[in-house]
């Protein structure tokens, strides 16, 4: 993995980093990717019949607490808020 790959990943993951940090991260990545690529060898052995059979577990969409119960404690953790809203910077 080279520095430009890792820069793109950092952008995708919304992580600021200095070039030095990214350089170091890129270097550390290859041995890990090489190691985990072993799964490709095994998957060849076992074939496609083992595609995971996953189901989504949902919950009923019902209100279980009184509106406003947690508003103040939650807002207290927000870096910026206005009234009962968390404040976000203007996009356009």
């Amino acid at each position: 993995m080279n520095i430009s790959d890792i820069k793109k990943l950092a952008r995708l993951a919304r992580l600021s980093a200095t070039d030095d940090e990214l350089e170091a991260a890129a270097k550390g990545m290859d041995p890990i990717l090489e190691y985990v690529a072993q799964v490709q060898k095994v998957a060849g052995m076992v074939g496609e019949k083992n595609i995971p059979d996953l189901i989504n577990r949902g919950k009923d969409d019902v209100v279980t607490i009184e509106t406003g119960t947690y508003t103040n404690v939650v807002l207290a953790e927000a870096p910026a808020h206005e009234g009962n809203y968390v404040k976000v910077k203007k996009i356009l």
């Binding site: 890792i6 990943l9 990545m29 890990i32 799964v39 998957a43 076992v46 496609e48 995971p52």
Partner: peptide
Amino acid sequence: LLGTYILSHGYYDAFYGTAGIV
């Protein structure tokens, strides 16, 4: 960063999909 790479288009099947099979 590693997870972002693994889930990115083009590598998803080779890594995440395969790991699920294993």
